[in-house]
Amino acid sequence: MGLDCIQFCGSECGEIVQKTFEHPLDLAADEVAVRVTHSGLCGTDLHFLKTDMVLGHEAIGIVHSIGSDVSLVQVGDRVGWGYPNWTCGRCDWCLRGEDNYCPNWKIYGVSDLDQGSLSTMAVRKEQWLFKIPENMSSEDAAPLMCGGSTVWTPLVHHVRPYHRVGIVGIGGLGHLAIQFAAKMGVEVVVFSATVSKRDEALQLGAKEFYVTKDVDDYSTLGTTKQLDRLLICTSAKLNLGLFYPLLSPQAMIIPLTASDGELTVPYFQTIRNGFSITGSVIATRFMQKEALEFAARNGVHVIAEKFPMTLDGVKGAMARLKDGKMRYRAVLSWDY
């Protein structure tokens, strides 16, 4: 006998369906059964609507039971998880502490398709579970398990306190990037197609705000000083060459949203100015832990719309996310 659980899954036709699943009570030695309480939604979830799998990978829940070798968490702990569920621990990337690049990892959408955060229960490997700080709400914590770690990682790796950092787009990623960067002491400059977001961007910590809609020459925006780093936090396809007049020599451009298509930039200007374009993925285990603790310590909060963890709630949240109407993350919960 197992536990009867509810799961919200993708399907071949793209329709979200509700399933009932009997969760086995026997766990592998390194496994943890988590009773899900909250789940964030990420743009990546949209890519798997036509896959027969449990959706969701920004989870917060309570430890229900643990395997015989589990020592990092206990029954009753509040924990979170994100994209990965397992890394090998033996490859060069794992051995040098960059387990987020493990070529053997098991991740959302590729493996463990019967385990996701849009459910009542999920089984996860101990190594990629994270305790949630006591002073952090589950509504804040859920989106930090993927969206938050996506912007945190490049800020820690590539940004110094004396840099001017441009953030393109105020959405699920951008509003978190502004807060993390500002709390780090960085001078934040925001670019948005929507003038209505100016006050909000400044309240979140931005020092400057520029509207790019219908502007063909960004050198006319009137920025006060060149930018050292540029984080692309919008899913809209951009002509990155438009930003080149705003960048300092050896500036770095960091695209962060998962998108299809080709990335093209002006060839000679890239070489002449020493610009670099750097990819970045989610945080390592160490950096994920640090991101949660930094956010809790410095008051980084998620602006989110809340939905019940029901079939109608999941469908409604997905529809708003797909239509680009979410402001700025979605959080679903069983105790809505």
Rank of each mutant, 00 (worst) to 15 (best):
P133E: 09
D335N: 13
G166K: 05
T120L: 09
P255D: 03
V168H: 10
I303A: 06
T44G: 07
E31W: 11
V36N: 09
V165E: 05
S71C: 07
H23L: 13
S149H: 11
W93D: 13
M326G: 12
H47Y: 12
V281S: 14
D69M: 06
L227R: 07
Q226H: 08
S119T: 06
P255I: 08
L41F: 11
G222W: 02
V36F: 01
G148A: 04
I16N: 04
A319S: 08
K125A: 12
E58I: 00
E139H: 15
V159K: 02
T257I: 01
K322R: 12
G169T: 01
G61T: 03
N135P: 15
Y108P: 11
T51E: 13
P133C: 05
G76K: 06
G2M: 03
F180K: 08
C42I: 02
F209V: 03
K225I: 01
A330L: 01
P143F: 00
G185C: 04
H57Q: 03
T150N: 04
D114W: 10
D335I: 00
G80D: 00
I254T: 05
E290H: 07
Y210E: 05
G174L: 04
E126A: 09
Q203V: 00
G171F: 10
L55Q: 08
T120R: 11
V79K: 07
S235V: 09
L46H: 10
L238V: 01
L46F: 08
D52H: 05
V159F: 06
G76C: 04
S149Y: 14
L242W: 03
K207A: 14
D77R: 15
C94K: 06
G40Y: 07
A201E: 04
P249M: 00
F130N: 12
V195A: 14
G274N: 06
S68G: 13
K315T: 00
S117F: 02
R229T: 01
H301Q: 04
H38T: 01
N104S: 12
V186L: 08
A28Y: 15
V159C: 10
L204H: 08
E262K: 14
V215T: 12
H175R: 05
M318Y: 08
D312F: 02
E31V: 05
M145I: 00
L221H: 03
E200H: 10
W334V: 00
D114K: 06
D99L: 01
S119M: 01
S138E: 12
G316A: 00
Y336E: 10
I282W: 05
T310L: 03
I6T: 13
L49W: 07
P161R: 04
G61S: 07
D4A: 13
K183Y: 08
E58K: 12
R160T: 11
R285W: 12
S65G: 02
Q127N: 12
G2C: 00
A283M: 06
S138M: 06
V331L: 11
L3K: 11
V159A: 09
K125N: 15
G205K: 05
L221W: 02
G10R: 10
G2K: 11
T150A: 01
D99G: 04
V79R: 10
S192R: 07
L155E: 10
D323K: 14
C42Q: 07
C91D: 02
V34L: 06
V188S: 12
D199N: 14
T220V: 03
D4T: 09
V110Y: 15
Q18S: 05
N100F: 10
Q7S: 02
Q74R: 15
V34M: 06
D214M: 10
L202V: 15
H175C: 03
T257Q: 09
